[in-house]
C-alpha cells in the first residue's frame, strides 16, 4: 500500500459542489481533495451521483455551486480552462468509446497530434509505448470492433495515457465487461496505480479498492457519506448506509 506524503499538494480540489438536474439535486455540497499520486475509489448505489461527480471534474457535466480546481486551474465555463483541464486529466468510460473508424494506433495518436500538436512519428512512438504497457501492442493496426471488450478497455486506458495526463478518471471501467475480462483491465489499473498515477475510480470492484485505494469513499443521494482507508472502510464503517451497501455488494462476490 502506497501512502503519499500528507504534505503533497492537492491536485484536484472539489469545494462544496452542488449540482441540480432541474429540481432534482444530484450533488450536495461535495468537498473532496485529491493529492498528487493519491488513489481514490468512489462507490455507492446507482444514482448516488458518483459518475456525475467525476464528470464534473473534466466539465463533461456542469455544476451550479461550489468550485472545482485541477492543478491550479478552475473548472468553470472558460473554454481555455476547460481545454487545459481536459488535456491534463484522462478519462476511461464504462462503454470504452473507442473510435470505430480509426485503428487502435490512430485512436491513440489522434488527441496528442490534434490537441498537443505532437508530430506523427513522436505520437506513434508514444502510442506504441503505452499500447505495449497495456500489453496490446500486437493489435495496433486492428480496428476496435476486432478486439474483445477487455482489450478495447485496455486500449482506452492507453489512449488516455498518450496525453500524458496528471490524473486519470475511471467511470465504472469494468461494468460493461464479461466476467473473464474484468481481471485484465483491473491488472492494468493496478499497474498504473503502482506507477504513481493519481486516480479516481468509480467502481464496485472491492478487491481492487482493497488493493490500491488510499481512500475509499461512499456516496449516496448526492452526498459524500463516508471516507476512510480501505482497511478501516471495510472493517469498521461508521455509517449505517455504508454498512447496508457493503452488505449488498460483498454478498454478490
Amino acid at each position: 500500500m502506497s501512502h503519499p506524503p500528507s504534505d503533497a499538494a492537492p491536485l484536484i480540489s472539489i469545494e462544496a459542489v452542488d449540482k441540480w438536474y432541474g429540481a432534482f439535486q444530484v450533488l450536495r455540497g461535495i468537498t473532496l481533495t485529491v493529492r498528487k499520486g493519491e488513489k481514490i475509489v468512489l462507490c455507492g448505489p446507482s444514482g448516488s451521483g458518483k459518475s456525475t461527480l467525476i464528470r464534473c471534474i473534466n466539465h463533461l457535466e456542469t455544476y451550479q455551486a461550489g468550485r472545482i480546481v485541477v492543478d491550479g486551474v478552475v473548472v468553470n465555463d472558460s473554454v481555455k480552462n476547460i481545454d487545459t483541464v481536459r488535456s491534463e486529466v484522462g478519462m476511461v468510460f464504462q462503454s470504452f468509446n473507442l473510435f470505430p473508424h480509426l485503428t487502435i494506433l490512430q485512436n491513440c495518436t489522434l488527441a496528442p497530434m490534434r490537441v498537443r500538436g505532437v508530430n506523427k512519428a513522436t505520437a506513434e512512438a508514444t502510442a506504441r509505448r503505452y499500447l505495449d504497457r497495456v500489453r496490446i501492442l500486437d493489435q495496433a493496426d486492428k480496428y476496435p470492433a476486432q478486439l474483445s471488450g477487455g482489450q478495447q478497455q485496455r486500449v482506452a486506458i492507453a489512449r488516455a495515457l498518450c496525453m500524458e495526463p496528471k490524473a486519470m478518471l475511471f467511470d465504472e471501467p469494468t461494468s460493461a465487461l464479461d466476467p473473464e475480462m474484468v481481471k485484465e483491465v483491473l491488472d492494468t489499473m493496478v499497474g498504473l496505480a503502482a506507477d504513481g498515477m493519481t486516480m479516481i475510480c468509480v467502481t464496485h470492484e472491492m478487491g481492487f479498492a482493497r488493493q490500491v485505494a488510499d481512500r475509499v469513499i461512499f456516496m449516496a443521494n448526492g452526498e459524500l457519506v463516508e471516507q476512510a482507508p480501505p482497511e478501516v472502510f471495510f472493517r469498521n464503517p461508521t455509517q449505517q448506509r455504508t454498512r447496508d451497501f457493503l452488505g449488498q455488494i460483498l454478498a454478490q462476490h
Partner: peptide, 8 residues
C-alpha cells in the same frame, strides 16, 4: 464525450 475528454 470521449473526444471532448481527450481535449478535442
Amino acid at each position: 464525450e470521449a473526444g471532448l475528454a481527450l481535449g478535442l
